[in-house]
């Protein structure tokens, strides 16, 4: 029995279906070709200026030398990066490397050179630096004065920095508030220190700035200890200790433990105070000075 011949419309449908199948088979190949062509035709990334790449490399080496405690070499690298940035009038790089060089001088005990470096940067009005970088330079100056024990000058420069770093969007806002809290503590104004440390903590938590969060907590605890509220100092210290342990910062772990010992001693827990002080001494014994 012969099968019935397909009608013209059936033939068209089958033919169309077979063409569709062929297109589907070709589709991956076509997509691959299109992808390769699109990739080849896509604009290459903006080539980085070779001089800036070199400056970035020196900057990175400077940071590595600084972490190793080799301040002389770090200064050399930062000076070279600065020279390149100056030769290309790269104002952002000039600011970054000047501030870093000042820090390297400070760590090497060359405070006058650190001041000179920052003064040169802050005096170069022709650079038209971004306000945030000027704020960073002023903050570095304030930290430098604080390191020298010139607290009035430190406060003055902190205020100047804050003038350009008022909103929470400023990267140094939390650090600045912490510094102001520390200066308030140095003036024995524990109330102001507590308020400023609280503001700093809020800003730092927003920015998830781990080290500065721990600093804010430690400052709060120190303010509480000043106010003889020893029990209230323990909670922030617990959190600060946990954070510092997570970040692996031996010097701050030691500070946290020492403050915990102080808080416990103030609260009359002599045994616990002794335990924390022993732990602080143990950490101090094991860590190297650079840490």
């Amino acid at each position: 029995m012969r099968a019935a011949a397909p009608s013209a419309s059936e033939v068209r449908i089958r033919s169309g279906a077979s063409h569709a199948g062929g297109v589907l088979r070709l589709l991956p190949l076509m997509l691959l070709c299109a992808l390769i062509l699109a990739a080849c035709a896509s604009a290459p990334p903006e080539p980085q200026n070779a001089r800036l790449a070199q400056a970035a490399d020196y900057n990175r080496r400077g940071e590595a030398a600084l972490k190793q405690g080799d301040y002389g070499r770090a200064q050399g690298f930062y000076r070279e990066a600065l020279r390149i940035d100056l030769s290309t009038e790269h104002s952002e790089g000039i600011a970054i490397n000047s501030i870093n060089l000042a820090r390297a001088h400070q760590l090497a005990g060359e405070r006058s050179l650190a001041h000179q470096t920052l003064d040169s940067l802050l005096g170069a009005s022709a650079l038209h630096l971004a306000p945030e970088l000027v704020a960073a330079a002023r903050l570095r100056k304030a930290l430098l004065y604080q390191d020298e024990g010139k607290l009035a000058d430190a406060g003055d420069w902190a205020e100047r920095s804050e003038a350009l770093c008022k909103d929470a969007g400023c990267a140094w806002r939390g650090t600045l508030l912490n510094l102001r809290a520390r200066l308030a503590l140095a003036r024995a104004d524990a109330g102001a220190a507590l308020v400023l440390a609280g503001q700093a903590l809020a800003v730092n938590r927003t920015r998830a700035a781990g080290e500065e969060i721990a600093n804010s907590l430690r400052l709060q605890a120190e303010a509480r200890i000043h106010q003889q509220q020893f029990a209230a100092a323990l909670a922030p210290l617990d959190e600060a200790l946990a954070l510092d342990k997570r970040l692996g910062l031996p010097e701050r772990i030691e500070a946290d433990l020492a403050l915990m010992g102080e808080a416990h001693a103030g609260a009359g827990n002599a045994e616990q105070a002794r335990e924390f002080r022993l732990r602080a001494a143990s950490v101090s014994k094991q860590r190297v000075p650079a840490e």
């Binding site: 896509s42 990334p45 970035a56 500070a255």
Partner: peptide
């Protein structure tokens, strides 16, 4: 391509400003 998409150019970075550093000194 495609390596360039995975490589980020080096940038100059600022040493973090740390409110604890001077206190520790």
């Amino acid at each position: 391509w495609p390596v360039r998409n995975f490589v980020t150019p080096q940038q100059e970075t600022l040493i973090p400003l740390d409110s604890h550093e001077s206190g520790s000194a």
